[in-house]
């Protein structure tokens, strides 16, 4: 079947015609041009397609677009501020947490959500949080360091705002 639906992505309502069997990942990438989320497996195993769905990170390859009507969706594009980088993104660069970059959008999305709910995670908590995001390049060590650094920076900037 096909259907006209409204998808709320990064705060904007998008009216799109979709097929019942299209995943959210496919619609984000092919119909909305939001290609930061990647398909690494299409089966929920790698986390490359992670988006924030209804407030928590999920694999968009295992969500049907048709289910997503009326749900708030946030992608890496929506996390990236208009004219600079988010402190998590900058920390990923500064700490050498990026190699081929294919896992990076999913990693940052997952990190964003982690630090929202747990601004000061322990190393164990970080490892658990990103355990569904596979990275074949980095061996994760520098990613974990970047997440800790991002947590520090976010705390500092929050402190300043207060």
């Amino acid at each position: 079947m096909s259907k006209d639906i409204t998808l709320n992505v990064n705060g904007i309502d998008h009216h799109v015609n979709i097929q019942g069997n299209e995943t959210l990942l496919k619609v984000l990438r092919d119909k909305l041009g939001l290609t930061a989320a990647k398909e690494g497996c299409g089966a929920g195993e790698c986390g490359a397609c992670a988006v924030i769905y209804n407030g928590s990170p999920a694999s968009s390859c295992l969500i049907l677009a048709i289910e997503a009507e009326g749900v708030e969706i946030l992608t890496l594009e929506g996390i990236t501020p208009k004219d600079h980088l988010h402190p998590i993104q900058q920390a990923f660069i500064d700490k050498g947490a990026v190699q081929c970059g294919f896992c990076t959008p999913g990693m940052i999305v997952t990190t964003y959500s982690l630090l929202k709910s747990n601004p000061d995670p322990t190393e164990e908590e970080i490892k658990k949080a990103i355990s569904g995001n596979l990275c074949r390049c980095t061996g994760y060590v520098q990613i974990i360091e970047a997440i800790r650094e991002a947590a520090r920076r976010l705390k500092r900037s929050k402190g300043r705002r207060k």
């Binding site: 930061a36 890496l76 594009e77 980088l85 990923f92 660069i93 990026v98 970059g101 940052i108």
Partner: peptide
């Protein structure tokens, strides 16, 4: 290539 990769 850091910017390209962290920003999508």
């Amino acid at each position: 290539d850091g910017y390209d990769k962290v920003s999508g």
